[in-house]
Design a protein around this nucleic acid. Structure first.
Lengths: 251, 251
DNA sequence: GCGATCAGCGGCACG
DNA sequence: CGTGCCGTTGATCGC
């Protein structure tokens, strides 16, 4: 395929708000938040109507070079090559230049699509479900207003135990690591400073790494193993047996 | 384009290790670490030779559904639709089903590409440069170790100040937030526990958020504003003026 | 708009 | 392999 035809396809796609797909031999330069060079090779270029610009190699999931929505895309013939540029000013001035010296294909498509993804099993959804049955974590646990306690960062769930102590619950949808523990600790420290009461912190996740558990113990925080299943209408929390590790039950 | 021809294109591409690009009207289901449904609409499907599987809508950078390298892809005709599946067992059993009821195009391409991206301006590179001139942060600062791997996480730069105190330096290539502070604090705490010496912590970033700075101060840590420029052969640290905030010089 | 956090994060490198 | 963390993270939500 001729470079001229490729240019025409791209320009038409840009004008008409169509998706554009180009495959060819190219090299790529990027300069912006970082900078990069990619020497000659065959790649797939995808340009979306919203300005999204993706350069893919034949491996891996992530695009090797990219530009987010809002990029201004242009296509010109320069020095015997088809130069496709994507420029953006949003986070900062950024530019990608893809220089094709030959093309395998260049097509454009109209994509009619008004649908949004419906996702099940997000942390937010788990929090909503868990809030409805906090006794699952510990008998007598009562939910409190979440928003009242948001100041810096947000606590997934605030509750009060049967002894009246404040309980901050940090929820993770996957294996919890050190970051989850430090995050919970930060909230508990913050609350402890503001409240005169005892404040407990419970990390609620399907798993926890060994290091994170050790740190959790050192900090006097607690872990509750949360089993859940992603299913169709909603996520189901399987929690039956309480495998909670009461690490500071002395209080 | 007929669904049968699309099926043939996909199957041939899979057999021959070619990149496959399909555009058509479809709905998508996913079940794995989470679950999702996406109703009918026009989408772009990209299948890479390594099993990477990407379903793109006409907006946004991120694929709406995806599967990483190693996925097993199949294409079959079922109930009058072209059903393309991607199955994976790696993180856990996961499956995406894309069901096309019509196709705009289905093409495959051979991508010859042995090149790797050369990236400039990464945090690692900044660490290398900074290590060569630690006096920029503070006169008398001597490098001890780069990328010091601790049991939990790694410290970007370890140094010793002119008084002999241990200095942990956390480097961020962009605006530092609360997470950067908690990370640094974790390292300093860990070192303080192991060392008898004084341990200082310096967060080194182009910017810091107001909240993060407050927390940094509370924790007795320090901030050094790092100016740098990404350029072609390498990143350059511009640091001239030391705007370092000495927050705990009393010690 | 910035700030903080989540993500089916992905990818990498060390243990 | 798991653990931890960077990323041109991107995307979302609340302020």
């Amino acid at each position: 395929m001729q470079l001229e035809e490729g240019q025409r396809v791209i320009q038409q796609a840009l004008l008409r708000g169509r998706l554009c797909v180009v495959v060819g031999h190219c090299h790529v330069k990027y300069h912006g938040r970082a900078a990069s060079k990619l020497s000659q090779g065959d790649r797939l270029l995808v340009v979306k109507p919203d300005g999204t610009f993706l350069v893919h190699q034949g491996k891996k999931m992530a695009a090797i070079n990219y530009q987010g929505p809002g990029a201004i895309v242009s296509a010109e013939l320069k020095e015997g090559a088809l130069l496709v540029k994507a420029e953006r000013s949003k986070p900062m001035n950024e530019v990608i230049e893809v220089s094709f010296d030959s093309l395998q294909a260049a097509h454009s498509f109209t994509l009619k699509d008004d649908e949004n993804l419906r996702l099940f099993g997000s942390e937010r959804q788990l929090a909503d479900l868990l809030e409805q049955d906090l006794a699952l974590i510990e008998p007598g646990l009562k939910p409190l207003k979440k928003e009242a306690f948001m100041r810096k960062g947000r606590i997934d769930l605030m509750a009060q135990d049967k002894k009246g102590a404040l309980v901050a619950i940090e929820l993770k949808r996957r294996n919890a690591g050190l970051d989850a523990v430090t995050q919970l600790k930060r909230y508990v420290d913050e609350l402890s400073k503001r409240q005169k009461f005892e404040v407990r912190g419970i990390l609620c996740a399907p798993e926890i790494t060994a290091n994170a558990l050790k740190m959790l113990e050192r900090e006097g925080l607690e872990f509750f193993k949360l089993d859940y299943e992603v299913s169709n209408p909603s996520a189901k929390i399987k929690g039956l047996e309480k495998k909670q590790k009461m690490l500071n039950e002395f209080r």
